[in-house]
């Protein structure tokens, strides 16, 4: 949401998130960058926490809980992850 209009995450970041999401995508819906965690994947607060922990491990980052309300789609998460990775360097 905070990303500039038209910003796109790298395909590698998206692919890594798609991979993590496999085990959370119980309904087996087709994942796209625009897939929404709450509405499309039915994530509740507990699943969000488990999922975020796996994302943190995969990218070796800490994702502050503060940003979660602004992350609705896989694209937004990918951009947020890339921002944290860049800041950590």
């Amino acid at each position: 949401m905070n990303a500039p209009t038209g910003a796109e995450p790298s395909p590698d970041t998206l692919a890594a998130l798609f991979e993590i999401l496999k085990s959370f995508n119980k309904a087996g819906i087709a994942l796209t960058p625009g897939t929404r965690f709450s509405e499309d994947l039915n994530f509740d607060s507990l699943i969000v926490m488990e999922f975020v922990a796996e994302v943190e491990d995969a990218f070796d980052i800490s994702v502050p809980l503060n940003i979660l309300p602004d992350v609705a789609t896989i694209r937004e998460l990918a951009l947020a992850v890339e921002k944290i990775v860049a800041e950590d360097k």
Partner: peptide
């Protein structure tokens, strides 16, 4: 409580001092 704080909120794995260490190191 932390939701009402203006600080950045980071969780570490339950009872995992090594995970806490890793996260403090990043900061």
């Amino acid at each position: 409580g932390v939701r009402g704080s203006s600080a950045q909120i980071i969780r570490f794995r339950h009872n995992d001092a090594a995970d806490l260490d890793k996260r403090l190191n990043r900061l």
